[in-house]
C-alpha cells in the first residue's frame, strides 16, 4: 500500500519508525517524498498509531494572549484577545497555533473546541467587537498544520455542551439569539463536513457542559430560560448507538455552574475539577489527557492562577512552570489526540 517508505528497510519496519515521529515533524517529513506525504496524511496512519499506542494527548487551550499579540483593532478595548495554546504533557512543551482564517480580531469570544482524530474543531462564540453570535466552524489539522473552514453551524447557539467521538462532534443546549435556553442538539461530521439534527433533549439547558462518558454524550446541568443561573443537578445522556436521550439523576451538585470544570472519573462518575485541590478552587478549567489531566485554577477570587498536571487518577496535582507567553488566563480547553 505504501511502497518504499524507506528503501533500505522492510515496509513494516519503516512504518514503525515513522509511527514514532513527533507530530511537530509532520510538516517537514511530508515534504520528503510522495509516499511519506500520503502516509502521514492518511486516516490509516492515525488508526495504526492509535492501535499501537503511538498517539499523543495534547491540551488545546483557549488562552488570553499577552498584550503585544493583540490585534491593533482591539487595542482600544480592555478585553484581552484569545489564541490557542497547545501543551504537550509528555514533553512539557508549549506552542501557539496559527490564528484562524479571516480573523483580524482574534478568536471569537467564548468559542468552543473539541478534539477529533488528529484535528481541533472550533466553533461558535461571539464577534469580539459587536458581540454578535457567530456560526463559523474551523478545523485545524495537526498533520498538515493548516486551518480550514467547516460547514457553518445550522443555528446560532451560545454556551452549549460539546463532545466528540471518532469523526463526530456533538453539540446540545445553550441559548439562541434571544437568550432563550435550547433543548435542541446537532452533530457535525468532520470528515464529511456535514451537520445533522439530533432528537431534542427533554428540557432546555443553557450554560450546560458536555462530556463523553463511555458511548454516551452527556449534557451536564444547565438551566431553563425562566430559571436563570439555577443550575440543575441532573444530566441528559445521548446514546451514540441507541440514538436516544436518557435522564441521569443526581450526578451534579444543584446550583453549581458546570462550565469547564466537569471531569469524568474512571468509574464514569462526574467530578468537579475545583474540588480536587484547594489551589484550584476558583475559576477552574480541567482537561483530561489520556491517563493524565491538566488543571488550571486559582486558590481564591482574584488570585493568580496556577497550571497543574495530574499524573494518574487520584494522584496529587503537580505544579508546572509556565513560560511567560503562555501564562495568560485560560478560558477553556479540550484534548486532541494526535
Amino acid at each position: 500500500m505504501w511502497p518504499d517508505l524507506i528503501p533500505v528497510l522492510p515496509h513494516d519496519l519503516a512504518l514503525e519508525c515513522l509511527s514514532r515521529l513527533h507530530f511537530s515533524l509532520y510538516p517537514l517529513a511530508s515534504r520528503v517524498s510522495p509516499q511519506w506525504r500520503h502516509l502521514l496524511h492518511s486516516h490509516f496512519f492515525y488508526s495504526h498509531r492509535k492501535k499501537s499506542g503511538h498517539t499523543r494527548y495534547l491540551a488545546c487551550l483557549i488562552q488570553a494572549l499577552p498584550p503585544q499579540f493583540s490585534p491593533r483593532a482591539l487595542k482600544h478595548t480592555s478585553s484581552p484577545t484569545y489564541g490557542i495554546t497547545v501543551f504537550d504533557p509528555l514533553t512539557l512543551t508549549w506552542e501557539r497555533l496559527p490564528s484562524v482564517p479571516d480573523s483580524a480580531l482574534g478568536l471569537p469570544l467564548f468559542c468552543q473546541t473539541a478534539g477529533c482524530r488528529g484535528s481541533l474543531v472550533l466553533m461558535g462564540g461571539w464577534d469580539p467587537v459587536s458581540y454578535e453570535p457567530l456560526t463559523d466552524v474551523f478545523v485545524y489539522d495537526f498533520r498538515t498544520t493548516k486551518w480550514r473552514r467547516g460547514k457553518e453551524m445550522p443555528s446560532k447557539r451560545s454556551f452549549f455542551a460539546m463532545g466528540s467521538c471518532g469523526d463526530r462532534v456533538y453539540v446540545a443546549g445553550g441559548h439562541d439569539e434571544g437568550k432563550n435556553a435550547l433543548k435542541t442538539a446537532s452533530v457535525y461530521n468532520v470528515g464529511e463536513d456535514e451537520w445533522w439534527e439530533l432528537p431534542p433533549m427533554s428540557q432546555e439547558r443553557d450554560e450546560c457542559e458536555g462530556r463523553m462518558v463511555g458511548e454516551e454524550f452527556w449534557v451536564v446541568s444547565g438551566y431553563r430560560t425562566e430559571q436563570q443561573g439555577m443550575f440543575e443537578g441532573w444530566a441528559e445522556a445521548y446514546g451514540l448507538r441507541s440514538g436516544q436521550w436518557r435522564g441521569v439523576e443526581g450526578v451534579w451538585e444543584r446550583g453549581r455552574c458546570p462550565r469547564w470544570c466537569v471531569g469524568v472519573g474512571k468509574d464514569g462518575r462526574l467530578v468537579s475539577w475545583g474540588e480536587l485541590d484547594s489551589e484550584v478552587r476558583v475559576g477552574v478549567c480541567g482537561v483530561t489527557l489520556g491517563s493524565r489531566a491538566m488543571v488550571i485554577g486559582s486558590e481564591y477570587e482574584g488570585g493568580r492562577h496556577g497550571f497543574y498536571v495530574q499524573q494518574g487518577q487520584n494522584c496529587k496535582l503537580r505544579n508546572i512552570r509556565v513560560p511567560d507567553d503562555f501564562s495568560g488566563f485560560v478560558q477553556s480547553g479540550c484534548c486532541v489526540e494526535i
Binding site: L13, R20, H22, V32
Partner: peptide, 25 residues
C-alpha cells in the same frame, strides 16, 4: 525505531532523504 524517528529533528528535507536513502520523486 525511536532513534530513527528522532533523527529527523533539526534536519532539512534533503538531509532526511540522504540518511533514509530516499529519492526525491
Amino acid at each position: 525505531c525511536q532513534t530513527a524517528a528522532d533523527l529527523m529533528k533539526g534536519m532539512t528535507v534533503s538531509q532526511i532523504r540522504k540518511i533514509f536513502h530516499i529519492k526525491n520523486d
